[in-house]
Design a protein around this nucleic acid. Sequence first.
DNA 1: GTGGTCTAGACCACG
DNA 2: GTGGTCTAGACCACA
Lengths: 122, 122, 122, 122
Amino acid sequence: MVHLDYRDARPIYAQIVDGYREQIASTVLQPGEKLPSVRELASELAINPNTIQRAYRQLEAEGWIATVAGKGCFVCGGEKLQEQEKGRLLLEFDETTAALLALGVTRGELVWRIEKGDKGNA
Amino acid sequence: MVHLDYRDARPIYAQIVDGYREQIASTVLQPGEKLPSVRELASELAINPNTIQRAYRQLEAEGWIATVAGKGCFVCGGEKLQEQEKGRLLLEFDETTAALLALGVTRGELVWRIEKGDKGNA
Amino acid sequence: MVHLDYRDARPIYAQIVDGYREQIASTVLQPGEKLPSVRELASELAINPNTIQRAYRQLEAEGWIATVAGKGCFVCGGEKLQEQEKGRLLLEFDETTAALLALGVTRGELVWRIEKGDKGNA
Amino acid sequence: MVHLDYRDARPIYAQIVDGYREQIASTVLQPGEKLPSVRELASELAINPNTIQRAYRQLEAEGWIATVAGKGCFVCGGEKLQEQEKGRLLLEFDETTAALLALGVTRGELVWRIEKGDKGNA
DNA sequence: GTGGTCTAGACCACG
DNA sequence: GTGGTCTAGACCACA
């Protein structure tokens, strides 16, 4: 499922796209898995089916999912996409790191923040 | 100065806000320093003065600058704001880190990316 | 609705902000209630939609309302905001009280002014 | 003296006017007392003499001070003005009280806030 | 000269 | 139809 926030600056359809993109990229949703149908998700989120459809259309255009007429939408097995997403995130990682260093945060503190989750996340 | 990218999804005024926020947060712009006047920056960037004014208004609302009518806009000396910004960046750092780990990037690689700049920035 | 006074020193947008802030703080406007649309209010008050939009933007920045693009602006359920507003008013109350005492008004008279409305408001 | 705050929304001259008005109304400055000269105050506050002059002009127009050419500016003995100011403050007091009651503050708490300063201020 | 306000009207994204 | 952005240009108060 996806979490909607009406106070978020992003339009609803974009929140859905972002939500699924992240879940697919991180393999929370496995390749081949079926997404909820347009009507189903629309009624669950209490929003217009058109909005869902637009989100699915974009996810398909980006290659994250494939829609099979009459059957539903399924997660693609996209290694290339994961690579692309990884590249984007690494860039963001480097930028954030640089900004934090400029603010006086030490490399040691950043390393510590990476290591600290070690116990909980395997 | 600030770099505008018309292909960027963010509206112009937001690009200006983000640009100056970053420069102030990283002390590239020192407290007390004067920002270009509304009209000046507008003509340099070839956009409407209203757009600049909107950006400056938001920077003031966020506490980054103080605007003195008839004199100009000046960078605030904001330790508190830097703390705030640092918190925001650390949050982003953690989120990006989590997403990368979920994608199979190892902690070691992230740590390496942090250390690698060590020679250049000391 | 909001009352505009062109003889007021405050700019129009500020009068609108103050008017709605007061109504929301005093729960005359209940959380979830919809504010008039930008164009609607603009035509009712016979002023430019941009001016309304600026007022709404500020109300949102202060956390009083949430605006949903394409749907409208809605009053937030803000207990925290009411607390904030209460603090602001108490400060103003103390300052006014101090000034009146300095002018020779007795504490008894001020207390009387507070009690006098007792019949009407329970 | 008067306290200036460049981050205050009010223009500088207005801050000066408000500051002196308050001090005269509360008899911190006694009738007949001499105000600092335009040049003197201007250099103390490190602002343009024109700004001081404008403030003094307005204070004179409102009847709080009288300027004697070649001698200086002096506080008027203005009972009528104090009455006027008292009326304005009482109105503000009533409005603030009403707003606080609407927010659920009890009359008892307001009365307490009035009485509490009783020891310190005689 | 500075910033602040406001108008008039355009175009866009969203639902 | 909704709000969001931007332009063009006016007038004002202030320093």
